[in-house]
Amino acid sequence: MKPHRYQGSALLLALCCSAGLFLTSPVVAEESLEQRVTRMEKLLESQGLVDLYLRLEALQQEVQMLRGEVEQHGFDMKGIKQRQRDLYLDIDRRLGQLENGRPAVSPGSPAKLPESTAPTAPREQGNPATANPGTEEKAYREAFDLLKEGRYEPARNRFTDFVVRYPNSGYADNAQYWIGEINYVTRAFEQAIVEFQKVLDNYSSSQKQADALLKIGYCHYELKNFAKAREALQAVITRFPKTTPAGLAEKRLQQLKNQGQ
């Protein structure tokens, strides 16, 4: 008699159980591999997040460093712009004063100069360079117009030529002062000191004395010669009290004090 098919299946099932193959070997092996893959994926994800975090942190540090550099540059530029603004306001004030103090000269009439630009020395009779006041003023005006246009190099050349050709002119002290001012504006501070000093040495009665001495102090400040800067600025206050240059000198001395200089 042939065994029933279900009996054979039961026998096979029993053999599998006894051999430990039922729901253990294939399924457990499969689950273990899946778990290992899952753990590996989580590990890789964690490592990727760590790398991403590290890169992000490095970028943040770099941004902070760049921001600090930008702020420093901004501070430096603000200081430079403030100094330029003060300088141009000062120049504009002086140009306005000079313009208002120089009435136009009618052809054939003698030049009428304000008291502040009166000749510092008597003119030599028959000197061809000063024989024609109209020509003298025209030469000064041409240099002055170049200065107002910001054409510093041509203006410096014209003023230098003017001082050589008209050393006794009532405009000579102003011309010499503007030579120094042009050097100051173009940051040639050492040469500016030389030119401003000529105002002090050669035009003792000029009203540009206080301004020239003030700018000598400013030049020493820019060159970081702080002791000489203080000396010049204090001299402005002592020699020319209660004047605009003296007030500016006091402000710069206070600035030096605030900077620990």
Rank of each mutant, 00 (worst) to 15 (best):
P128W: 04
D201T: 09
K208V: 03
F159E: 01
L12M: 14
G20I: 02
Y203I: 05
L95V: 11
Q64R: 14
L21Q: 15
Y184F: 14
V163T: 14
E31M: 14
N157I: 14
A29C: 11
N100M: 11
Q7N: 14
Y221E: 01
N157G: 10
Q84I: 10
A188R: 15
P103N: 04
R5Y: 13
Y152C: 00
S116A: 11
R67N: 12
K224C: 04
Q209S: 11
L253V: 09
R85W: 14
L43D: 12
F189Q: 10
G48S: 07
A139G: 07
R85F: 13
C16V: 11
R83G: 07
L146K: 15
L223Q: 03
G134L: 14
P133T: 04
N127R: 10
E142D: 07
L59W: 05
S46D: 15
P167V: 05
Q47F: 06
S169M: 02
E34C: 08
T238F: 12
L98T: 09
R102Q: 09
L44S: 13
A131L: 06
T186N: 08
H4F: 11
Q125L: 13
N174Y: 03
A232I: 08
N183M: 07
L15P: 04
Y88C: 09
M65G: 09
R187D: 15
T120E: 09
R36E: 15
A235D: 03
E124M: 12
V163S: 03
L95Y: 02
Y6W: 07
I91V: 08
Y177T: 01
G68A: 10
R67Y: 06
E137Q: 13
A19Y: 11
L49S: 13
R230F: 03
N202W: 09
F159M: 04
G260M: 05
G48T: 08
V27R: 12
Q209T: 05
E45N: 13
G68M: 09
